[in-house]
Design a protein around this nucleic acid. Sequence first.
DNA 1: AAATAATTTTAGATAAAACTAAAAATTTGT
DNA 2: ACAAATTTTTAGTTTTATCTAAAATTATTT
Lengths: 218, 218
Amino acid sequence: MTLSEEDYIKTIYHLGKGEGASVSTNGIAEQMDTKPSSVTDMIKKLSEKGLVHYVKYKGVSLTEYGTKTALTLVRKHRLWEVFLVDKLDFSWDEVHEVAEQLEHIKSEQLIDRLDRHLGYPKVDPHGDPIPSKEGVLKKSVKKLLKEVPVGTEGVCVGVRDSTAPFLRFLDKNNIALGDTITVLEKEEFDGSLHIRIKERDIHISDLIAANLFLKITE
Amino acid sequence: MTLSEEDYIKTIYHLGKGEGASVSTNGIAEQMDTKPSSVTDMIKKLSEKGLVHYVKYKGVSLTEYGTKTALTLVRKHRLWEVFLVDKLDFSWDEVHEVAEQLEHIKSEQLIDRLDRHLGYPKVDPHGDPIPSKEGVLKKSVKKLLKEVPVGTEGVCVGVRDSTAPFLRFLDKNNIALGDTITVLEKEEFDGSLHIRIKERDIHISDLIAANLFLKITE
DNA sequence: AAATAATTTTAGATAAAACTAAAAATTTGT
DNA sequence: ACAAATTTTTAGTTTTATCTAAAATTATTT
C-alpha cells in the first residue's frame, strides 16, 4: 500500500462512519482537499486491489478487507497519539498532524511493542477507542457527566458552557480535556458527584456535571 | 524535502564519510540499489536546491547546507534507534529498517521531546554519536577494550574472537553488543580490568579485554 | 598516445498521483 | 416529465522519480 492509498482508505472509512456506508466522490475530494477527478482515478485503483466496492456514479464503500486495513491504520494512529501525549507530553490538540505521519510507518512489530510500552491503552487522548490488533473496535458515545451511571469511566472531551467562569473553575480544579474521569458516587440529595480524576478524588456539583461531556467506551 | 531527496542526501553524507568528500554517481547508485542515470537526475535537482556541489563527470559533495540537512537526518535516525532499543526492547540489530522510516517524520517538536524522553542520549545503540540539534557531531573511534585508558566509557560493538567458547563466556557474564562499558580500574600485575556494565561491576581478564571492541566518543 | 574500458550523462519512456476541461450520468425543481 | 443543476467520469497533461539505451566523457592499458 502506498501512502496515498492509505490516506484514501482512511478517509473513506471515516466518511462511511466506520460502517461500510457508501461515500461520494465529491465528499472524498472535499475531505482530502483534492479534485473529484483525482478521486475517481484512485477509487478505480483501490477497487482493482479489492479494497473498495465501486459502481460508477453510485459511490464507494470499503470491502471487508478495506475495513480491516482502515482499522489497522486507525489503531496505529491512536496508539501514536497516546504515545505523544503520555510519553512525550504533547497536549491533546497538538498530536493529530504528527500521528498522521506516524501511522504510515510499516512494522507490525513496532506497533505490538508500542502497544505494550503504553500499557495496552483502550482509548486515545480524545477518548476514542483503539481497535484491537484483530480489528475489533468498541463503540463509544458522548454524554454529559451528569447522565452517566455510577461506576462509569470516560474521557473528558468537551464543555457545554464555555464561559470564562466555568473554564476558570475547571482550571482551578485541574480538570482538563483528555483527562480520564470515573464516577465514584452520586449524592441522592443534590445530584452532586464524587469523581476520580488523575488519581485524585474530588466532589463536584450537579451543575458542573451538567456541563462536562464525557466520551464513554462500552 | 521529499523522502527520496532525503535518502539521497543521507547516502551522499555517508559515502562522503561525513566530511564533504566527493562521491561518484555509480557509488551512489550501487549503495541505493538504483541506476546511475536516476542518480544523475536527482543530483541535478539537489544541486539546484543548493544541497550539493556538482560538476558534470566530476562527482558530488554536500554543501554546508546539505551537510546540516544530513546531520539532522542522522540525529533523527539515531534518536529513534535509542527509542526502539531502550523503550521498546528491540535488539541492536532489528532497529535499522524501522528507524529508516521514522527518520523521515517531519516535526521538530517531536524530535526535541523524544530527545528529552530518552534523557538526551549521547550515542545510539551501535555506539555512534548523536549529532546535536545544532548539527555538531562528535568523533568516535573503535578500539579494543584492552587499549583504552582507565575512566573511558564506550559501547561494546564487536568481538575479535568469535569462537563459541568466547561467545559463551560473554553470554554467561551478561555482556552483549550494545552494552555500555566503563573501565574502572586496571590491575598492573596481569592487565585484568574492573569494568562497569549495566550497573554491575565485574572483573575480566586481560585476554577478554583483548577481544572486545568498544566504540568511544571523544 | 591510441585503443579499449569504465563511468557518467542525455534522450526518450513509463508509472503514480495529481490536475484542467469537457463529456456523461444522475438528481432536483418546477 | 423534462430542463437545469449537480455530480461524476473521461481524456489529455503535468510532475516526480524511476528506467533503458545510446552518446559523451574520463580513465586505463599496452
